[in-house]
Design a protein around this nucleic acid. Structure first.
Lengths: 247, 247
DNA sequence: GAGTGGTCTAGACCACTAG
DNA sequence: TAGTGGTCTAGACCACTCT
């Protein structure tokens, strides 16, 4: 039976638990491409949840591109190749890699508490006396650098974060841990840039190469900005793919 | 009263009608930035719908970046600048522009029925005898070209589409009209490219300029592929912005 | 016609925010 | 404490697909 999959008591909403369980079945290849899931009513009964809750879980996975539903036919495991749903759900590079069970390494180029430039202060709604943690990292897959990140983090909201070893810990998880709040949303703007010299050194690419550039702003619940960053992505190595839907 | 906003009978699902109504209030500036909406229970009562239906409408608009919700506080009109939710919802360039009440013009460079290259045939799951419509267009805003599109459309699914005047009609609406089916989903892959010479002429940019490149595949319901395209975007003129959420 | 997902309801209780 | 959104339920009826 599938019923012991979820815990009816508080910690995590049931629809998230159900989505996690389905995602795991897909990623571990227990459920293969094109497998038809049990009908919603049936599956809900097995899991001892209501159909509405199950539908909410399924819709998350449709959004991630892991499932497709066809009216009158059923729910199926999608034929998903490598996909980096960076543009779809607010997940970090680290989370995206982890979900795909890919290994990456992080090298910290710079980590320092600084007084922020005017532009950063505005974006993060900082008071004049607020400091920010400036973080500059390169991430590599199989020894090849693919992504360069420059983050500015509101230090008041994440006290002690300057002590973290970012070769071992991810920024998102540390920001949530230090602040005691959940990251809720973000804005990402995608542009194509010619790689500046300063960045080209770290990405092991010729200056002027076309790269994906992301401008990011991250919020806690309550629309409180806590982090802003510039990201340079080698789009020859790491493409951003989105599975999108119409309503 | 707000109740005449929606039609309880069939044509369009109520949650879409409600979302359209809210979107219009926001875009026409009747509801301004930071305006707090009536509480869900109250608003549902006014619209004579259930709270669940209202929540579904609201979640669409949160996804579009038009509303934000804060637990315990309320629902608010987001502070939205120009945003092109290209990476979030499967809407076409034309629809994106129309929603923002921006004018654009379309110039058709080429429109021809052709026998598709092998790669296109595979992507669209075509039989050897199937033809495709090849369409090459430039779109300009205020006289400035910003986007170049090359589309391959399964002609069997959209009979007669070769007759359409694409300076006046949009591809998505024509594909839906000719086929009698609704476009349901798509996959977009974002890359940064150095602008090839052939494309540079149409975008009025130097060859080699960094541009956003999109590789797109479009599906009807039932996961039937009907169109695939390559799109070059001037990211200095037209940036792709996504408002993203975590669950 | 049998089986599927799509929409909608009317309610319940919980968790968070604010004064 | 009052007011808000977040989650969950148990059911109903409709629309679509396939045989």
């Amino acid at each position: 039976m599938e019923k012991n999959v979820i815990n009816k008591n508080h910690p995590i909403p049931m629809y998230i638990q159900v989505a996690d369980w389905i995602r795991e079945n897909i990623q571990s290849k227990v459920w293969k491409k094109d497998k038809q899931l049990a009908a919603e009513e049936e599956l809900a009964k097995q899991l001892e949840i209501s159909r509405g809750t199950l539908k909410k879980a399924i819709s998350l996975l449709i959004n991630e591109g892991l499932l497709i539903q066809i009216h009158g036919k059923g729910t199926f495991v999608a034929d998903k190749k490598i996909s980096y749903p960076f543009a779809q759900e607010f997940i970090s590079f680290a989370e995206s890699m982890q979900r795909q069970q890919m290994d990456f390494t992080t090298y910290v180029i710079e980590k320092s508490l600084v007084h922020p430039p005017e532009k950063i202060r505005e974006r993060l709604s900082l008071s004049p006396e607020d400091d920010v943690l400036f973080l500059k990292r390169v991430r590599s897959i199989e020894g090849e650098p693919v992504i360069l990140l420059e983050n500015y983090i509101n230090y008041r909201l994440c006290p002690g974060i300057s002590q973290v070893d970012f070769t071992k810990n991810t920024l998102f998880s540390e920001m949530e841990k230090r602040s005691g709040h959940k990251i809720k949303s973000g804005i990402r703007q995608f542009e194509a840039h010619a790689l500046p010299y300063e960045q080209s050194v770290w990405l092991n690419l010729p200056q002027g190469s076309p790269v994906l550039f992301l401008d990011q702003l991250t919020f806690f619940e309550g629309h409180i900005p806590l982090e802003t960053s510039s990201v340079w992505l080698r789009s020859d190595k790491y493409t951003v793919t989105s599975v999108l839907h119409r309503d």
